[in-house]
Amino acid sequence: MPHTTWRKSSFSTDVGANCVELATSPDGIRIRESDQPDAVLRTTPATLRSFIRAVKAASLDHTH
């Protein structure tokens, strides 16, 4: 299995284990939370861009 290089969010701190990490792979983008490194989500760059746009626009604020 190839080595995966994870990048931590610039908004995460070194205090605690609540960090969002991303990595690129041949099958798209991988996302994980540092306190649960074995739980990895996979998505495409286009889907991740759409999600980030929706978060920035507060489009998801009404969901629970």
Rank of each mutant, 00 (worst) to 15 (best):
R32T: 09
H62E: 15
F51R: 00
F51M: 05
D61H: 04
P26Y: 14
F11Y: 15
F51V: 06
D35W: 08
P2K: 14
T47P: 02
G16I: 12
P2Y: 12
V20E: 02
E21Q: 05
D61E: 02
A17M: 11
P37K: 07
N18P: 00
T4L: 15
R32D: 05
S59A: 08
L41F: 09
T47L: 09
T43H: 03
T4I: 15
K56R: 10
L41D: 02
T4R: 15
G28T: 09
H64S: 10
T4P: 05
P45Q: 06
K56E: 04
E33I: 08
R30C: 04
T24Q: 08
L22E: 02
T24F: 03
P45Y: 07
K56D: 01
R42W: 05
A39W: 08
A23M: 06
S10N: 07
T47N: 07
T43V: 01
D27A: 12
A46G: 12
D14Y: 04
I31Y: 07
T4D: 12
S25M: 04
T43D: 03
L48M: 02
S12T: 10
L22D: 00
D61Q: 07
S9V: 03
A57I: 00
M1Y: 14
R53Q: 11
R7A: 10
D38N: 15
R30H: 06
I31D: 03
F11G: 05
H3S: 15
A58E: 13
V15Y: 06
H64F: 11
A54I: 01
H64D: 07
W6S: 05
D35P: 06
H64C: 07
T43S: 05
R30W: 05
L60Q: 08
D14S: 11
F11I: 08
A46N: 10
K56Q: 09
S34G: 08
H62L: 13
T47G: 10
V20K: 02
H62C: 12
T13G: 12
R7L: 14
A58Y: 07
L41G: 04
V20F: 00
V20G: 00
K8P: 03
L60S: 07
A46F: 00
C19E: 00
A23P: 09
R30I: 02
F11V: 10
A23L: 07
V15C: 11
R49Q: 12
L60W: 04
D35Q: 11
P45N: 09
Q36V: 14
D14G: 06
T47M: 01
T44H: 13
A54N: 00
S50G: 13
S12D: 08
L60D: 10
P45W: 03
T5M: 11
K8F: 11
G16Y: 12
V40Q: 01
